[in-house]
């Protein structure tokens, strides 16, 4: 284990007291320290929202980019240097709304990165509008008659697209969340962890007690992670019971594993192929 304080950032944290993000932050640090990945080998990419600010609060490399666009940035960085452990810190608006298309295609692409979605079912940064995962009927200042869209089900969508690692955590269960993050990082491929998280300022429905009443941990001894059909059933559980743990896991080549140019050294560490370039330019001469 690496001393967890090595991941401490001195940057002032302005999350609301009681915010679920603190638990997620703690779990991230714990997971990195447990896996002994030093700060300089870690890159956290984020988009916009309170979750997007997370990498400012962990000492490591950071790319805090545009709203919804963390996954493409993370994929590009991973392709350029696959020695980096790449985590993406996103939220329900950032990942399932603005960045929905990238979520879909990252699953198809299966890059070896770990996505943490702080899913609090509301927009926190912009002060309380409905998010893609808000419950039907949730009343906000901007949705005074209640949300009328069906909530986005990230677990079910991920499973339907062939995701290779789909898990759900809870910001109030830091130990378990750290375990999930560790397993996600160790999974070779795209690991998705949807993290249920109360928003103490703007979501008065999905509160700590609301979650405490519903969450349960999947029994690792009996839960068959490779059973897609069962995983899909678990994905539909929400109103009565919410399963936590690795819902589904399978293996197929990670994006980087499918690219010949990445079989050896990371792209950024490879030598410039001056001779080969000259051959190409010369062959252009010959061919014509």
């Amino acid at each position: 284990m690496i001393d967890i304080s090595r991941y401490d950032s001195t940057f002032e944290n302005k999350w609301c007291p009681g915010c679920g993000n603190f638990g997620i932050l703690q779990a991230m640090k714990h997971a990195l320290s447990s896996l002994t990945i030093p700060p300089e080998k870690v890159l956290i990419v984020s988009g916009i929202g309170q979750a997007g600010k997370t990498p400012h609060f962990i000492r490591c490399n950071m790319f805090h980019g545009l709203h919804g666009r963390a996954l493409p940035v993370a994929t590009g960085a991973k392709v350029a240097n696959h020695d980096l452990t790449v985590l993406v810190s996103s939220g329900d608006g950032d990942c399932y709304g603005e960045g929905g298309n990238h979520f879909i295609h990252a699953i198809r692409r299966n890059p070896n990165i770990t996505l943490l979605v702080h899913n609090n079912q509301v927009y926190g940064l912009t002060k309380g509008q409905a998010s893609p995962t808000s419950s039907i009927g949730m009343i906000t200042k901007l949705q005074p008659h209640g949300v009328h869209q069906t909530p986005f089900n990230p677990i079910l969508v991920a499973l339907s697209l062939g995701a290779t690692f789909v898990a759900r955590g809870f910001s109030g269960k830091i130990q378990q969340l750290s375990q999930l993050i560790q397993q996600g990082i160790q999974h070779r491929g795209f690991s998705i962890i949807d993290i249920c998280q109360p928003c103490v300022s703007f979501n008065s429905i999905n509160t700590y007690p609301w979650y405490q009443k519903r969450i349960y941990e999947l029994d690792e001894a009996t839960h068959n992670r490779s059973d897609l059909k069962h995983a899909m059933e678990l994905a539909t559980e929400w109103e009565e019971r919410i399963p936590l743990g690795i819902i589904y896991q399978s293996q197929r080549p990670a994006f980087e594993d499918t690219i010949d140019a990445l079989k050896t050294l990371p792209l950024v560490k490879q030598e410039t192929q001056v001779d080969q370039l000259r051959t190409i330019m010369n062959n252009e001469h010959k061919r014509n």
């Binding site: 666009r69 493409p72 940035v73 590009g76 960085a77 392709v79 350029a80 295609h105 690219i259």
Partner: peptide, 23 residues
């Protein structure tokens, strides 16, 4: 490495990510 991506927004951001990491 050349990657066809889901849209031009992904294209520009992915190129930025790779460039950030040094290529």
């Amino acid at each position: 490495v050349v990657e066809q991506v889901e849209d031009e927004i992904a294209a520009v951001n992915m190129a930025i990510g790779a460039s950030f990491a040094g290529v």
